[in-house]
């Protein structure tokens, strides 16, 4: 296997690149369970910092999960019918609309947040409510849901399937429930996982919209880095990993499934 110097060089570069990415990650994880980071691992391992994070930031964790869940519900309710509408009426207007929905991808989260603050910032009950952050998250994640569902719907020749169902006597709402949604399910799944992951990890927009009483996971992370012991911030990162990695893996799996349908 390692016959030529070129191969050895390739392997070395790969390993160095991996180390470059992994070492800080592992060090951070280690710091989160070390008694005293400045003395190193010899000071002993502990779960104390993780419990401390839990005490300080449990509200952030629950808020993030709650926001991601609500964001998912909203993008499902808006995004799936929107993708269905776009798939059924392919035309110039649909393209324009699709681009319009995708605009939040191109606009920085900060700008989006500023715009929201300018328009709704003075609405008292709304500004300090978690639903204000939710609006930002929905705006930001909706294009991912629409695109994921639309690409699967475009690939399955939905128009003919619907004509088939209509010729069997199925009205529009039944065709949506019986034909469009089940056959676009891989797209819905891939879109859902993307939305949840993005919502949990979203920082730019949320940083602008949050209040001291409404901190999400990434905002809490920034806060802990700024104001807590390094061990607590590192333990926080560990908690974040534990939450986001299974989601990322599920997302990979779902998009692989969606890809298979598209073939």
């Amino acid at each position: 296997m390692l016959k030529s110097p070129a191969k050895i060089l390739q392997l070395a570069v790969t390993l160095i690149a991996c180390a470059f990415l992994l070492v800080p990650t592992l060090q951070s994880v280690l710091a989160g369970v070390t008694v005293n980071y400045f003395q190193g691992v010899k000071s002993g391992l502990t779960l104390k910092w993780i419990w401390e994070v839990w005490d300080l930031y449990a509200a952030s964790i629950f808020l993030s999960i709650w926001l991601a869940f609500c964001c998912l519900i909203c993008t499902l309710i808006i995004g799936v019918p929107a993708a269905y509408g776009l798939a059924r009426n392919p035309g110039r207007m649909s393209r324009v609309l699709e681009e319009f929905i995708s605009l939040p991808l191109a606009i920085p989260g900060l700008a989006l947040a500023l715009a929201l603050l300018q328009v709704y910032g003075s609405v008292q009950g709304f500004r300090a409510h978690w639903s204000f952050i939710l609006v930002g998250h929905v705006l930001y994640t909706l294009p991912f849901m629409v695109r994921a569902v639309l690409s699967v719907m475009a690939a399955i020749d939905l128009k003919t399937l619907e004509e088939g169902a209509a010729s069997l006597g199925a009205p529009a709402w039944r065709r949506f429930i019986d034909i469009a949604v089940p056959n676009a399910l891989p797209g819905v799944l891939a879109g859902s996982l993307t939305v949840v992951t993005l919502s949990i990890g979203e920082f730019n927009l949320t940083w602008m919209l949050h209040t001291p009483f409404l901190k999400t996971l990434p905002v809490g992370l920034a806060d802990s880095y700024a104001s807590m012991r390094l061990e607590i911030a590192s333990a926080y990162t560990l908690v974040f990993f534990i939450m986001i990695v299974p989601l990322l893996m599920a997302m990979q799996w779902a998009s692989a499934r969606a890809q298979r349908i598209l073939k």
Binding site: T160, E163, G164, A165, S167, L168, G169, D178, N183
Partner: peptide, 29 residues
């Protein structure tokens, strides 16, 4: 409309519903 006309239609691409079994496809109408 096609929904009320009670015709049976066989499409060139068949337009069978991939999310249903043979039996459920046939029973859909």
């Amino acid at each position: 409309s096609v929904i009320q006309r009670k015709v049976g239609m066989v499409f060139q691409s068949y337009a069978l519903f991939p999310n249903m079994s043979v039996r459920r496809n046939i029973g859909y109408g």
